[in-house]
């Protein structure tokens, strides 16, 4: 802990620093969140609930749930596979793979969306072919799913790689010498050892998948009731001066953030414990 006497700042300095930090958080994070809920409830709970009765809003919620229900499991598999490959094996091109995993973090989400438009759009490289098959990707659900997968890809892999690297391969090797098959080793040794980090990654991935705006906005086409996710729906409602409905949907997204944050803190507490135990091991 850094509260030792080696840090001899005067109480005044310490309290000033703490006050600045808290003030900053209050001004830029807490206040806007309160504003969201305040705006949503401005006309009373009745109007707030009415916003969710709207079919387009319900469609947006359903679509968001559908997209994350597809994107998160897929990224769970991709992330596990990538982390496993990177942490447990040596192969040429490994550092390139690590860079590629980070790519979605460094590229603007709008660009990620545009890439899919250029690839699958009506005038895109594969557009005519898709047209022949009568299969729509851009301005349709598949495009939204693809863009979401792209943007949320790093979350699970980044969570697992350092942990798996730290744990090494000795336990897997032990399982193999004891006669376990590769698959059994994965199920009974590798997976349990990363379960908390994996759950943590899934939570973050899910939060981002439900909240993604930029990439999805480019490929969605904003068709009400069809290709509008919750964040896009919030924008449309707001632009239509339907503030109560806009903030009501926004408050749902904010609530999701709170749930994620709570679950994340809980896991950090559990998972931090497990990590510490790992190091003592």
């Amino acid at each position: 802990m850094h509260s030792s006497s080696a840090f001899s700042e005067s109480p005044a300095v310490r309290w000033t620093l703490i006050a600045i930090a808290i003030g900053f958080l209050a001004l830029f994070l807490v206040l806007p969140l309160i504003a969201v809920f305040a705006e949503a409830l401005r006309r009373g709970i009745g109007m707030f609930l009415e916003a969710f009765a709207e079919p387009d809003t319900q469609a947006a919620i359903r679509l968001t749930l559908l997209v994350s229900a597809i994107a998160v499991p897929l990224n769970l598999v991709f992330g596990l596979a990538a982390a496993w490959a990177i942490a447990k094996f040596e192969f040429p091109g490994k550092s390139l793979l690590i860079t590629l995993i980070d790519l979605p973090f460094s590229v603007s989400p709008v660009v990620s969306g545009l890439v899919y438009v250029l690839l699958f759009g009506a005038k895109g490289v594969l557009g005519p072919t898709l047209d022949d098959w009568d299969f729509k990707i851009i301005f349709a659900v598949p495009g939204i799913v693809l863009a979401t997968i792209f943007v949320t890809f790093p979350f699970i892999a980044r969570e697992l790689i350092p942990l798996m690297q730290e744990q090494g391969t000795a336990e897997e090797e032990a399982a193999l010498t004891l006669g376990a098959s590769g698959f059994r080793t994965f199920l009974t040794v590798t997976l349990p050892n990363v379960r908390w980090a994996l759950l943590y990654g899934v939570l973050l991935c899910n939060a981002r998948a439900m909240g993604e705006f930029g990439a999805v906005s480019v490929v969605s086409g904003h068709i009400r009731g069809l290709t509008n996710t919750m964040p896009l729906h919030v924008e449309i409602l707001y632009n239509e001066y339907n503030f109560v409905a806009a903030f009501a949907v926004a408050s749902l997204l904010a609530a999701l953030a709170f749930v994620t944050l709570g679950a994340k803190s809980f896991l950090e507490w559990r998972h931090g414990d497990a990590l510490a135990a790992t190091r003592r091991h």
Binding site: E171, E173, A174, A175, P192, H281
Partner: peptide
């Protein structure tokens, strides 16, 4: 194994 490699 040197570092035991027990299943933690």
């Amino acid at each position: 194994f040197q570092h035991y490699a027990l299943f933690r």
